[in-house]
């Protein structure tokens, strides 16, 4: 199982850069970048904060996929 996401899609639709989203969420740009590329699995708190700042719910942003 792997955690897939559509953070990049929702972020670009909202007209935000990685740096702008990172500043809103209170993390570094690397964190947003690695979450988007599915390199880093965010904590529950970070996933919920990302969803809140992007105006969506966490299930829309993240879901589980079979390997």
């Amino acid at each position: 199982m792997r955690l897939a996401n559509r953070v990049k899609e929702v972020r670009t639709a909202a007209g935000l850069t990685q740096a702008a989203l990172a500043e809103r969420v209170g993390v570094s740009r690397k964190t947003v970048n690695t979450v988007e590329n599915a390199v880093f699995v965010p904590s529950t708190t970070l996933a919920l904060t990302l969803a809140r700042e992007l105006g969506t719910d966490v299930q829309t942003l993240f879901w589980l996929e079979e390997d």
Binding site: A22, E23, G26, V27, S28, K30, T31, T34, F40, P42, S43, L46
Partner: peptide
């Protein structure tokens, strides 16, 4: 404080 926390976020701690 805010930027320092962002620079030492969960990716950095990992």
């Amino acid at each position: 404080r805010q930027r320092a926390r962002a620079a030492a976020d969960e990716t950095y701690r990992q």
